[in-house]
């Protein structure tokens, strides 16, 4: 295309109707997954179940049922559970760590790179930017969870026998059913991380220092888990965004108990609304001086 033709095209369409703006979401997700940091975090997450599986395989010891996370003792009989074990081990720290990095970086990272002002004068629209940033963080939550579950399931199939699995309720389910349960666990864990993402997004609007926002988000997830383990504060527990994080077990009973799934979803939605509103309140009127 000659340059004249290009400028002609550009001038003829430039003042048309605005697009809905899916291009920005696509761009946001592609930028997220073009960063080496994102892939490094996903690789570390995938290593968690791989290391567990190798450790169990090499020592050939069957940990006794009382110690270690649920299902660890089942791994040697059924490799399909490695993914679920990996995700249970990653929930308290590894997953919130990576989600904290992505959510905390969302606005503060753009501010510190100097790209925030260029997005705003494009003009991106401040609300639209918050929504796109949040959706990208949610996509990362899913990718992070799947990295653990998929890597765990694959290494499990490679190192251990595959067959019917025994659930917490004592029932036995077949291979396809086990894979479906693993996917359900992934969905549960992804939803569990959505509240934390909203908190990270809000903190990210408060500062131009991305590391600070990341650290604050991660610390909050740890604090919430500590509070959740103090029995004297049991009145507070149902309100903590980490309260249902380890409720995954309910999906591994027969029949499935949907209680924690429902309560968790409602709780996470409440956190999204609350911190989404706070992020909007802060960011929509903020002077961008970075």
């Amino acid at each position: 295309m000659s340059s004249d033709a290009v400028s002609e095209v550009a001038s003829s369409v430039s003042r048309g109707r605005p697009s809905v703006g899916w291009a920005l979401l696509g761009s946001e997700i592609s930028v997220l997954f073009r960063r080496r940091r994102t892939w490094a975090m996903l690789a570390v997450l995938a290593l968690v179940p791989i290391l567990i599986a190798i450790a169990v395989r090499v020592t050939r010891s069957t940990p006794n049922g009382g110690r270690g996370p649920a299902f660890l003792d089942q791994v040697t009989q059924n490799g399909l559970f490695v993914g679920v074990v990996g995700v249970l081990i990653s929930i308290p720290l590894f997953l919130p760590l990576t989600v904290g990095v992505v959510a905390g970086d969302s606005i503060a990272g753009e501010a510190s790179a100097g790209t925030l002002r260029y997005l705003l004068i494009a003009p991106v629209g401040r609300v639209r930017l918050l929504i796109v940033k949040y959706l990208a963080a949610a996509v990362f939550c899913l990718a992070a969870t799947l990295a653990v579950v998929v890597a765990g399931t694959l290494i499990g199939i490679a190192l251990f026998p595959v067959g019917p699995a025994t659930l917490l309720s004592g029932d036995v389910i077949g291979v396809p059913e086990t894979l479906i349960r693993s996917l359900l666990v992934s969905v549960y864990v992804t939803i569990s991380l959505l509240g934390l993402s909203a908190i990270g997004l809000f903190i990210s609007t408060l500062t131009d220092v991305p590391v600070g926002a990341m650290a604050a988000t991660i610390v909050l997830s740890v604090v919430s888990q500590v509070l959740d383990s103090i029995p004297q504060l049991d009145w507070l527990h149902p309100w903590l965004f980490t309260h249902y994080w380890l409720g995954v077990g309910d999906l591994l009973r027969q029949p499935i108990s949907w209680d924690s799934f429902g309560s968790n979803s409602v709780l996470q939605a409440a956190y999204i609304v609350l911190f989404g509103a706070l992020a909007y309140g802060r960011f929509s009127t903020k002077d961008v001086l970075s």
């Binding site: 295309m1 550009a10 697009s19 930028v31 260029y118 997005l119 494009a122 629209g125």
Partner: peptide, 16 residues
């Protein structure tokens, strides 16, 4: 990337 932020900027001609 910055061009996608402008809703009036047509994606069809973005590369050009």
């Amino acid at each position: 990337r910055l061009d996608t932020a402008d809703r009036f900027a047509p994606s069809a001609t973005r590369r050009a």
